[in-house]
Nucleic acid binder design. Structure first.
Length: 824
RNA sequence: GCACGAGUGGCGGAAUUGGCAGACGCGCUAGACUUAGGAUCUAGUACCGCAAGGUGUGGGGGUUCGAGUCCCCCCUCGUGCACCA
């Protein structure tokens, strides 16, 4: 019987059946080994999924399907990280409520993910904007609050004049607003909520070592955390004010010939002398207005002004001038530095420009190491210090001077981090309200747990007022409340939480998505977590991945979970570029959607093509030409079965391997080698070579069928093929399985194991080299011994051409590979 | 500037980790079947050479019987960090 290949008919049919019969439903707990396969929590944007997004969801789906067939209990869920600015901005422009946009966009994403055959357990779908979810996001806020890890502080916050609104850090791109490319942002002081992630800096850094994550991501996190060791040293100003500085090089203290404070340093007004005041204030004013990019530019020549004040260098009681300069940042260390022009390039340039003394304090072993016009940062012997220290190696002196500082109470060893606390306040509407009220008499009060969620009011005018406040501040019914402590009048915090708060715990929700008494059930979470495979783009290297690790550690400390790391293994998929090598973007009108590809070819072809085109972590361009090749492959597979459907079996066909003809053996061997190869490749996520292996098998079966028709070996090989294809081409596998009489569903069949005896080659090609150059190859039995191999090699005519009249001084035999004869 | 990555046919990429370089696919060439072909099938396809043979994994050195793979130097591209004291 001939059945025409018609994916447009069978793909929707199976899609519906899989949904209706819930074959991807996950058991809560079971005796099976578990596998938690998770995608990054997506924001459902208005434009829907492109084929680029599919490079994230299809590989994880293949993995999930594979582990299910391997007998694992697989948790493969999906949900929506749907709070955030885009929905709110869209609401402002179009007047559509963000809740409406979110609903619509999530529905589009769900439809498209179902289209591409993603095998999520849809009963576990979650949405961060539902009160059932953000109630627990607020609950975690309170947990952090109770543990002293959430605090409010006045801080300088990014502000865009054209938006008339504050911006999140991630919305500041190169010092300008993300929506107004040429509008530099400025800073505005505002009361803000912070999470004290810095308290976990050390653990966040150290625990990276145990993670199976891409090395570049770990490096980015290490850089972000930015640990440096050194000393905090107190310099006394002449008027008796202590100035704390942080230095990584206390061994250069004797070379400190001036100090620099950040222009924003609080001691500046106090230190500045009357005659310098006008100039200092002008400089501060200039630094304020200067954009961050200008100020941070390494290209820029250093500038600064003298405050008129002096401080005492604690190691030698020398009087050194205090300057202010914008190359010193208030946000790092203490906002003040000691300057050693001899040992620091920045200080060197500054000292040169302003004529400050450059004093040599470390003599390198090789005098040429000191380059004219540059600071010397290397090691050497101390000079120009005190008698006691001169002549010491600087490393040794480092320890000595730290001991001395600590003994004298003039400083101490310290560790400093570049990472700052996580600012979570957003003066925006579309986020989870921060569950805190401000009482006139009791002050700041957390909302009691039993009053959660603090509901986000629906009927709100979300146009920004330009006053730096959330639109919620204008909703009186929301703002006015009673104090949980005294019952008196109180006002609610009107800021909402950063969207990254929602994604910092969502992976704990999937094991028990509908639980209404707690964010998660301990036992279930301990069964499923940590996530076995986490896949998403590299762009979240520091933000989300660091925040989620932080929250997990807080929960561990609170005794809520036993583990300290949420994601055991992380992989980043490569970006998919447009055919011209540029980014796919709506503005360039070059976005290809899965819908279009499914329409023109099929979902299975899209899936296999994306897996085949390059290793999954490579950046690669879409190619219209190559997808046709995968379409051909799919049709070839279909033709292996077509017109012979009733001759196949879904049960293993008994094969008496030893009695097979050589050709039949070769086919059977290829089939079992393919099982081995595809299994190996899926596990190491080398999907492109797995597909290539399937193609090779088809390339063997097609001509075999033409010569021998439907033999047992052929039927068995095709049965193997269809199993191996199931994770990659789930629709076609299901349809073929159905036509050959398989019971629903192939996706609930067990993965096949290969028979190593059958997979093993019985003859091998032995390469024979003379002096490392290939001169012959011999077909020999696989179990050939070294002596036999050497005998065969040396007796080969082609080889003798190169060996006669010469002496074999060495013969190398690599079992099952080659013989190399070294002659002279 | 600093720190990682990566350079393999006309193209995307293989090479199970030091052992036949170019699997698989695209493209291309020739042929078959066709009214037709953007269908299908067959053969070929790294480069030079009629051939024997030689040369080839960005360039140059090195280790080794043997290097795409390991080591050193250089070039190009990509990514991240970028006055962090």
């Amino acid at each position: 019987m001939q059945v025409s290949y018609n994916p447009h008919e069978y793909e929707p049919k199976w899609r519906q059946k899989w949904l209706d019969s819930k074959i991807y439903k996950t058991d809560d707990v079971s005796d099976k080994p578990k596998f938690y396969c998770l995608d990054f929590f997506p924001y459902p944007s208005g434009s829907g999924l492109s084929v680029g997004h599919c490079r994230n969801y299809i590989p994880t789906d293949v993995i999930a399907r594979y582990y299910r067939m391997r007998g694992y209990n697989v948790l493969h869920p999906m949900g929506w990280d749907a709070f955030g600015f885009p929905a709110e901005n869209y609401a402002i422009q179009m007047g559509v409520h963000p809740a409406e946009t979110t609903r619509k966009n999530a529905a589009t994403y769900r439809r498209q993910l179902q289209l591409i055959g993603a095998s999520y357990d849809w009963d576990r779908e979650i949405n961060s904007t539902h009160p059932d979810y953000y109630k627990w996001t607020q609950w975690f806020f309170l947990l952090l609050y109770k543990r002293g890890l959430a605090y409010r502080k006045k801080s300088e916050q990014w502000w865009c004049d054209r938006c008339e609104s504050v911006l999140a850090n991630e919305q500041v791109i190169n010092g300008c607003c993300w929506r107004h490319e040429n509008t530099p942002v400025t800073k505005k002081p505002l009361e803000q909520w912070f999470f004290k992630i810095t308290a976990y800096a050390e653990r966040l850094l150290n625990d990276l070592d145990e993670l199976d994550w891409p090395e570049p991501i770990k490096i980015m996190q290490r850089n972000w955390i930015g640990r440096s060791t050194g000393a905090q040293v107190t310099f006394m100003a002449k008027n008796g004010v202590p100035i704390e500085v942080f230095t990584t090089r206390p061994d250069t203290l004797f070379g400190a010939t001036f100090m620099v404070l950040a222009p924003e340093h609080p001691l500046v007004p106090e230190l500045t002398t009357a005659d310098r005041r006008a100039e200092v204030e002008a400089y501060i004013q200039k630094a304020r207005t200067e954009s961050e990019i200008d100020r941070m530019s390494t290209e820029k020549e250093k500038t600064g002004v003298f405050t008129g004040a002096y401080a005492i260098n604690p190691v030698n009681d020398e009087k050194i001038p205090i300057w202010i300069a914008d190359y010193v940042l208030m946000g790092y260390g203490t906002g003040a530095i000691m300057c050693v022009p001899y040992g620091d390039q920045r200080d060197y340039e500054f000292a040169q420009k302003y004529g400050i003394e450059i004093r040599k304090i470390i003599e390198p072993e090789n005098p040429d190491a000191v380059v004219e016009g540059q600071a010397y940062t290397g090691d050497g012997t101390m000079v120009n210090c005190s008698e006691e220290y001169n002549g010491l190696p600087n490393r040794e002196f480092y320890e000595k001077i730290c001991d001395w500082l600590e003994a004298e109470g003039r400083g101490k060893r310290t560790v400093n981090y570049k990472m700052r606390d996580w600012l979570i306040s957003r003066q925006r509407y579309w986020g989870a309200p921060i569950p805190v009220v401000l009482c006139e008499s009791c002050g700041e009060q957390p909302v009691p747990e039993d009053q959660l969620p603090v509901l986000l009011p629906e009927d709100v005018d979300f146009t920004p007022a330009g006053d730096g406040k959330s639109p919620l501040a204008r909703v009186e019914s929301f703002v006015n409340t009673t104090c949980p402590q005294c019952g008196g009048h109180a006002t609610r915090e009107t800021d909402t939480m950063d969207g990254f708060a929602c994604s910092s715990w969502y992976f704990l929700r999937f094991p028990n998505p509908r639980l209404d008494t707690a964010p998660f059930d301990r036992e279930t979470v301990e069964y499923w977590l940590p996530v076995d495979l986490y896949v998403g783009g590299a762009e979240h290297a520091v933000m989300h991945l660091l925040y989620a690790r932080f929250w997990t550690k807080v929960m561990q400390d609170a005794g809520l979970v036993s583990f300290g790391e949420p994601f055991a293994a992380l992989r980043n998929q490569g970006m998919l570029l447009a055919e011209d090598g540029g980014k796919m973007s709506k503005s360039k009108n070059n976005v290809i959607t899965p819908d279009e590809v499914a329409e023109e070819y099929s979902v299975d072809v899209l899936r296999m093509y994306l897996m085949f085109l390059a290793p999954f972590d490579y950046e690669v361009s879409w190619s219209e030409a190559s997808i046709a090749g995968v379409d051909r492959f799919a049709r070839r597979v279909w033709r292996l079965f077509d017109e012979h459907w009733d001759q196949f079996s879904t049960q293993p066909i008994p094969i008496d391997f030893d009695r097979l003809s050589a050709e039949d053996k070769a086919v059977m061997r290829k089939a079992h080698q393919t099982i081995e190869k595809v299994t190996f490749d899926i596990e190491r996520m080398q999907f492109n070579t797995a597909i290539a292996a399937l193609m090779e098998l088809v390339n063997v079966l097609t001509p075999y069928k033409d010569r021998h028709g439907i033999t047992d070996v052929y039927r068995e090989s095709c049965r193997i093929l269809i199993h191996l294809m199931a994770p990659f081409a789930p629709y076609m596998a299901e349809e073929i399985w159905h036509h050959i009489g398989g019971a629903y569903s192939i996706h609930q069949q067990a993965w096949l194991g290969h028979n190593p005896d059958w997979a093993k080659e019985n003859t091998i090609t032995l390469v024979v080299q003379v002096n490392g150059k290939k001169r012959d190859d011999l077909t020999v039995p696989a179990d050939v011994t070294k002596d036999q191999a050497l005998e065969l090699a040396t007796s080969s005519e082609k080889i003798q051409k190169y060996t006669t009249g010469k002496r074999i001084i060495k013969s190398i035999y690599v079992p099952r590979r080659l013989v190399n004869l070294v002659v002279k």
